[in-house]
Simulated scan of single mutants.
Amino acid sequence: MTPPKAQGDDSNVTTRPPSAVSSCAKSSGLMPETLRQRADFLRAASARRQAAQGFLLQGRARGDDSSDMRVGFTCSKKIGNAVARNRAKRRLREIARAILPTLGHAGWDYVLVGRPKVTIDRDFAALLQDLETALAQLHAPRKPRK
């Protein structure tokens, strides 16, 4: 079977639909850049932390005059096998995709750390609310230490 000919042209050129990658939220600028270097994760771990019921949020202001926000995700083997860890990270990526573009601060690095059983089993709407609350508390002014 031969493909249909293009109109107005006698060539056998067919047009392909756009690939699924081009419609991804990251390419459209909605998802912050992803942290990949271990050093970036370690710097975020040594900065401010905010516990939420479904995960732990770590965040730091980079101070490099960059306007882009970066986010990383991590789940230890305490979460479970690879399937469970990947499911937890997918859930964390989705809440970050939904909340960080509106409530995250430019020039900040965020790391979401999954918690055993809770990250996978918690209701998705509750995870969204957890991230909103954690971001508000992370960016709230701190009281000076004595």
Rank of each mutant, 00 (worst) to 15 (best):
G104W: 01
R43D: 07
P18N: 03
R115V: 07
R38G: 00
Q137S: 10
G29C: 11
S66W: 07
A61N: 11
S28Y: 09
A82I: 04
Q53R: 15
A47H: 08
F41E: 08
G72M: 12
L112M: 12
T133W: 11
F124K: 06
T14K: 01
S76L: 10
G29A: 11
F41A: 04
R97D: 10
A6D: 07
L56G: 00
D130A: 09
R145P: 00
L35K: 15
R115A: 07
D68I: 12
F55R: 08
P17M: 00
A126C: 09
P32Y: 09
A47Q: 11
A25R: 15
A20P: 02
R36H: 14
T119W: 02
T102D: 12
Y110T: 03
A106C: 10
I99V: 15
K78A: 12
Q129F: 08
L112V: 02
D109N: 09
P101Q: 09
P17H: 01
A136M: 08
P116H: 03
L112T: 07
R49S: 05
H139Q: 15
N81L: 05
L127C: 15
T34E: 06
D9F: 15
G107I: 11
D64V: 13
T14I: 05
Q7L: 14
Y110L: 13
N86D: 00
F124R: 05
R122F: 07
A136E: 11
A96Y: 08
F124T: 00
L56Q: 08
V113R: 08
S66V: 15
A136Q: 12
A134N: 05
L128D: 04
H105G: 06
S46W: 09
V111S: 07
G8W: 02
D65S: 12
R36Q: 14
L42V: 14
N12R: 15
I99Q: 04
A39I: 07
Q37R: 15
L30V: 10
V83Y: 01
A51V: 05
A84Q: 12
C24G: 01
K117T: 08
T133H: 11
A98C: 14
G114H: 06
A88V: 05
R97Y: 13
D121L: 09
D64Y: 05
A44F: 04
R60T: 10
S22N: 05
R62S: 00
I79V: 15
R36S: 12
R38A: 10
V113M: 08
D9M: 10
D9P: 02
P144Q: 12
